[in-house]
Design a protein around this nucleic acid. Structure first.
Lengths: 236, 236
DNA sequence: TGACCCCCTAGCCAAATGGCTAGGGGTAGG
DNA sequence: CCTACCCCTAGCCATTTGGCTAGGGGGTCA
């Protein structure tokens, strides 16, 4: 592999003093976006054990992540797409980054694997997808190097999801509308169609209409299944 | 059980520093149990910034966690109760630790907050409960010190859960039987009672019976709500 | 042995749901 | 203007469900 040269760098004692162009090889500059302090510190610690890798910025929100990429133009963005209430915001962010900074590779580090998110993220140019719980310490460094080289890295369990996801959703994974999501949340709370209708100031027919559409989009046929899928996708 | 022998072992192992009162020299000995490497590294890094705190062991399973407590008799056990498929195993572990090593305080660090788990954990002698995503770096050190001093530490959002949890479940939060869980999982997959009955080689009546019991235990009245609660409790 | 819990089954009935067809009205963009 | 998409409504019908009562059999533990 290409580890030989990097090993030389590792032999250097402290790279923090001379980060100009002292080393023959440029450092891999990384931005970490995760709302969780512990994860950020852990990532920094693990990655910086690898000579030639530096975490140049941390972010805890979608905005901050984009700003950090704007400012630092990193080689790799490591991100947990779940940075707020709205998970789909993370997908938009991926789109923007790959669009505006094609040189910045994205490595997603997810807490929970959701088929929809995985497929959609890859569709938007994400080059790596790992599961936080399954990843080993050494796989992180390898993964970063791999995505930097343009390889696609899929962690344990992710590959099969891609296969299933691409197979099942033949058009594209349609995403739920606001109203549909609202109804689904009410269903998850155990409300009947009648109750939901009253709550949302719409007729019972409309509630059924939204649920029918949601059923189709999520490929579910029972409201319990809809709730499960939506829950697994982090939508509730 | 066989606790006597272990107590001897524990007594043998402990007294490297006198820890009656916390002297500036006595380190707070911590065991970290979490399946996630990144979290373990991050925790160690953050905690050891605080002078006087040392992570003496890490564990990635319930067994290993108990072994580590057996061996090191730490002052504080920091644990994510979700170390495997069966979340209730974590609760049993809390019971065992508080039972056998009352001097070891338990600080739960949860990825997702589940009302049932929170209430049950506190009922079993856990003295601290923080949410990974909400906790600030400095709160960790403070939290560890607090639980070590016997204080109860509840993170953001945990307190309200306790209030609601203790209010609603007047007897005790009964936990689901294996069969009930099996049926709920099938419901989450969108199966009808008839299909579930066929799959589990039981009659449709029995499926309904299990669901009725699960409804009562989870305080839900619709299968969609059952699925939601079970999902939120990390049971699926 | 009795108390207790889990698992299993039956039948009844009102209510809710799933699946369908068949519409109208709004807004945004090519 | 046409198209697409979202939101809203109506009715019909078979099926499923929620909620209930009323049992039997087996295991464990005091």
């Amino acid at each position: 592999m290409d580890t030989d040269v990097r090993n030389e760098v590792k032999a250097d004692h402290r790279p923090d003093v001379s980060l100009g162009r002292r080393s023959p090889l440029a450092k891999t500059r990384i931005v970490v976006a995760d709302r969780n302090v512990i994860t950020r510190v852990g990532l920094r610690s693990i990655l910086e054990r690898n000579a030639g890798m530096a975490v140049v910025a941390e972010a805890t929100s979608y905005e901050a992540a984009l700003d950090a990429v704007d400012e630092h133009g990193p080689d790799v963005l490591i991100i947990d797409l779940d940075l707020g209430d709205d998970t789909t915001r993370g997908l938009k962010l991926c789109e923007e980054v790959t669009d505006r900074y094609p040189a910045t590779k994205i490595l997603v580090l997810a807490q929970k694997l959701s088929e929809m998110i995985v497929v959609e993220a890859l569709r938007r140019g994400v080059t790596g997808y790992l599961s936080k719980d399954d990843v080993k310490a050494d796989e992180l460094g390898k993964g970063v190097r791999a995505v930097q080289d343009g390889e696609t890295v899929l962690g344990k369990g992710v590959g099969s999801m891609v296969a299933r996801g691409l197979g099942s959703t033949r058009g594209a994974a349609e995403h739920l509308t606001d109203r549909e999501l609202e109804v689904i949340r009410a269903v998850a709370a155990g409300l009947s169609n009648k109750q939901i209708a009253h709550q949302a100031f719409i007729s019972e027919s409309t509630v059924k209409f939204h649920l029918q559409n949601a059923s189709r989009k999520l490929n579910a046929h029972r409201r319990a299944e809809i709730v499960h899928r939506a829950s697994a996708a982090g939508l509730l």
